[in-house]
Nucleic acid binder design. Structure first.
Length: 188
DNA sequence: CTATGGATTCGCT
DNA sequence: GCGAATCCATAGA
């Protein structure tokens, strides 16, 4: 199955299927490549934990974009979080990219993050590692050179489904997917 | 108009 | 383990 097909389908399926996919960032002229190891699915009206729950707004508009559209939002006033819009345009579903392993560009990431460990094991960290900020909201990651999503090898390990992190509603929905071989998988 | 509440991270204890 | 840092769209008056 190709990425476009995957991203047009149900958001929990898409999230699970994105594990192992590669994300290539060429932001600021520096290349960083990561392989996704931790994602969360966020639905539309029926998912009270989702930003799209109360409909389309200026802030979450990209969530309603075509499959593969980047939805970038500011979290807690200081961090950026990167999501991939899922389902046909007009439907507010997205997959939050929470964690990854670095495939290429580790030195760039260390410089951007200002540290040598814990580089990409959290949504804010991952966005910073890739150089993603509010300017990149709305980018089509299936066609952009700046931020490109491309198929990768299936995850080498068991995939766990757990409750999502940091939310207060819909806690029982098992929509966080983590590759179990990720050593020290956070808050599992 | 003002108040509020986060899909978090880091440093200090 | 705990709390501070810090933005701004949304909701309510």
């Amino acid at each position: 199955m190709n990425l476009s097909t995957l991203l047009t389908g149900p958001v929990d399926r898409a999230a699970r299927g994105l594990l192992g996919a590669h994300l290539v960032s060429r932001i600021d002229g520096e290349t960083v490549v990561v392989a996704l190891t931790e994602v969360e699915a966020y639905g539309a009206d029926d998912d009270a934990a989702s930003h799209a729950h109360r409909g389309k707004t200026k802030r979450n508009g990209s969530m309603f974009g075509a499959p593969g559209t980047a939805y970038v939002y500011r979290s807690y006033g200081m961090h950026w979080c990167l999501n991939v819009a899922v389902m046909p345009a007009g439907v507010g579903s997205a997959v939050l990219l929470r964690g990854a392993v670095i495939v290429d560009g580790e030195s760039v990431v260390k410089r951007r993050r200002g540290r040598a460990t814990g580089l990409t094991d959290g949504p804010g960290k991952l966005a910073q590692a890739l150089g993603v900020n509010g300017d990149h909201d709305g980018i089509d990651m299936l066609t952009s050179d700046l931020l490109e999503l491309r198929p990768g090898a299936a995850p080498d390990g068991i995939v766990l489904a757990t409750p999502r992190v940091g939310i207060s509603k819909e806690v029982e929905r098992m929509w966080r997917f983590v590759v179990a071989t990720t050593v020290g998988a956070p808050r599992g």
